[in-house]
Design a protein around this nucleic acid. Structure first.
Length: 135
DNA sequence: GCCAACGTTGGC
DNA sequence: GCCAACGTTGGC
């Protein structure tokens, strides 16, 4: 079991939308490093959902329900998607500010590698976020 | 809205 | 294969 974090601009695709869809394919990744992480995701892996831009906080938990396959939104065969399903809300969203201040979390790529949209988390980091989130 | 960071593209 | 130019992301 691995743990991940994905970013989404709520203007483009919000957590509320994710919840009403229940399940979605995670498209639009156009970065090799992020793409490689998508390819490593396995069914059952847990994926935290982060709102960038206006919100800047981790708001929910999703899980991988289908492993990578070609991105249906492009003919370019370099890109893949995975299917994610909404699992639950964090009781308290975990803000970027909290993440920066937390010694366990301060070195995750969210802080260090601003532009990466899909990133791995350690079990320790995942647990820390869940705890901060009130679960 | 600005701009820094940084990944990608394309000319050479 | 290098690197300058360009485009996009995302925090502020």
């Amino acid at each position: 079991m691995n743990y991940w974090l994905v970013k989404s601009d709520p203007e483009t695709y919000s957590w509320n939308k994710m919840k009403s869809d229940k399940r979605t394919f995670w498209d639009g990744v156009r970065n090799y490093q992020a793409r490689n992480y998508l390819k490593e995701m396995k069914i059952g892996d847990l994926v935290l959902f982060y709102h960038s831009q206006s919100d800047k906080s981790i708001v929910g938990i999703t899980k991988v329900v289908k492993e990578h396959y070609p991105d249906p939104t492009t003919n370019d065969d370099r890109w893949v998607v995975v299917d994610l399903e909404a699992v639950e809300d964090l009781k308290n969203p975990v803000t970027l500010e909290q993440i920066k201040q937390n010694p366990v979390l301060s070195n995750i790529p969210l802080v260090k590698q601003q532009r990466l949209s899909v990133m791995p988390l350690t079990a320790e980091q995942y647990q820390e976020i869940i705890q901060l989130g009130g679960l």
